[in-house]
Structure formats: C-alpha cells, structure tokens
Amino acid sequence: MAETQSVKAFERTERAVVPEAEEGSPFRKIWNRHSTAITRIIAAILFFGGWEWAVRSGSVNPLFISSPTMISIRLFEVFADGSIWSHIRASGEIAGLGFVLSVVVGVPLGMLMGRVKLVRDTLEPLIMAKYSSPTVAFLPLLIIWFGIGILSKIVLVFLGGVIVMIINTEAGVANVDRQLVETAKSFTASEYQILSKVVIPSAVPFILTGMRLAVGRILILVVVAELYGSSAGLGYIIFQASANYDTAMVFVGVIILAAAGVVLNALLRAMEIRLTPWTTTLAKW
C-alpha cells in the first residue's frame, strides 16, 4: 500500500526542469536546455574512462574487475555466436510464467481481499507475514517440495510477484472514491455495476503500478533461483562465470538483466500512460 503511494509520489516530483528564459551565449543555451543529459554523459565518460584507465595502467587486477572494453567485446561475442539466447529464453520462461501467474492469481485475490471482509481478515496476517519476509528464504523449502527443476523456480518467482500484485490490487479496490460510488448509486447502479464500472476500473492504476513493482522483484528472484541447481539461464551464467573468474562474463549477465529491467519498466510505464492518462499526466518520462 505505502509502496504504491510512495512510488506514485516519487514519479510526480521527478519532473523535467524547464529553463525559464533562453539568453546568453549559444553554449549557455545548449547547457540550459540539456544540462541533465550533459551532466550524465560527462559522468559516464569519467566513470568508464577511469575504470578502463585503472585496468590498463595495471593499478588493478583485470581478473577481479574486468574492463569496459573487455566486457563490450564479450557482450558482442555472445550475441554474435548466438550462445546467449538459450539462457535468455530459459530465464525469460521462468520470469514470464511467474509474472503471468502472479497477475492471474494476485489481481482476483487482491480484489476479494479489498471487498470481502471475511477474506481480508483471514488472509491479511498471512500476506503481511509473507510480505515482510525475504522470498529467497523459501527457496530451500521449495526445492524440497518441487525439486530442482523449473517448477521450484517458477513458484519462487510467483511467490515474490503475487504478493505485490495482491497488495496493490487490494489498495486500489479499497481506495475507490466513495463519491464515485455514490454517483453510480444515484443513477440506480446495482452492486454488480458498482463493482464492474467503478471499483475495478479505479483499481487499474494500482494494478499497473503493482505489475511494474512485480517485474523488478521477479528479475531478482529469477537470478537467485538459477544460482541453485540449474543448467541454463542468466543466473546460471553469472554463477558459472564467477566460479571460473570470468569477470567479463559476469558483467555480461548483469548488463543483460539490467537492460531487461529497464526495457520492461519502460514498456509497463508506456502502458500506464496509455491506459491511465489521468494519473500519469504529471510524470512525463
């Protein structure tokens, strides 16, 4: 609940600063318009340049931290020979199935919890206990129950994702604007119409935010799940590479995961802007 709200609040404050007047030299103008981008580019150049320099000058051991060029070459290679795709597919399957299950189970359950007191009273302690405990801690138990195959991994990812979906959906359903419910009643709405035409649509922004938060958790859990007893996947690659002191390959795995995170987040964000324009007009990115 609090998580959803704080995410929304954060996005509201994160707005592009528009320079008030354009005056002075051309450099000044460019700076006024693109100061954020310029700052970031310079910071990136300094960071990666410094890293590369540190490795080349021999002041640090490339075995431990690799270097930007070594990582880039490695990244290019794994895509050029196509060897990475089977791992991306393996992780993608677990993450995708886990995500779909989280949404399919979490949204109806969250709605029930938000609307039916009996369900809420029964499940809330359980949900809260689960929410406050690290999902990873369940992995050994899940392996005992479901074996070391794909099933235990999907269940782990599902456990992490479904909690976020339940909590956000419940918050959305519980926070429905009473005045809108009254308005529907004033036009003779039935209980079912209130649910389908007011309560559920008003929970949509919360559900979409929940999906975005779930994706973040799921990516972490996929990697953790794959560290144990797997033969494919990005987590597997990272684990194997680190065991072999192949630091460049560890970074390749991390970079692909980070890119997946950024892309998925942007996609869900675009979906939010499209589906819920009234909540997202303030946050433009």
């Binding site: 005045q179 809108l180 009234w278």
Partner: peptide
C-alpha cells in the same frame, strides 16, 4: 431512473 443528481465535486469517472 426518473430522478438524477448533479454533484458539487462533479464526480466524473476519470477513465
């Protein structure tokens, strides 16, 4: 159905 209400805060469905 033969009566309708208009509200101070408009109460429009934002979606």
């Amino acid at each position: 159905a033969n009566r309708a209400m208009v509200f101070q805060e408009f109460n429009l469905l934002p979606w």
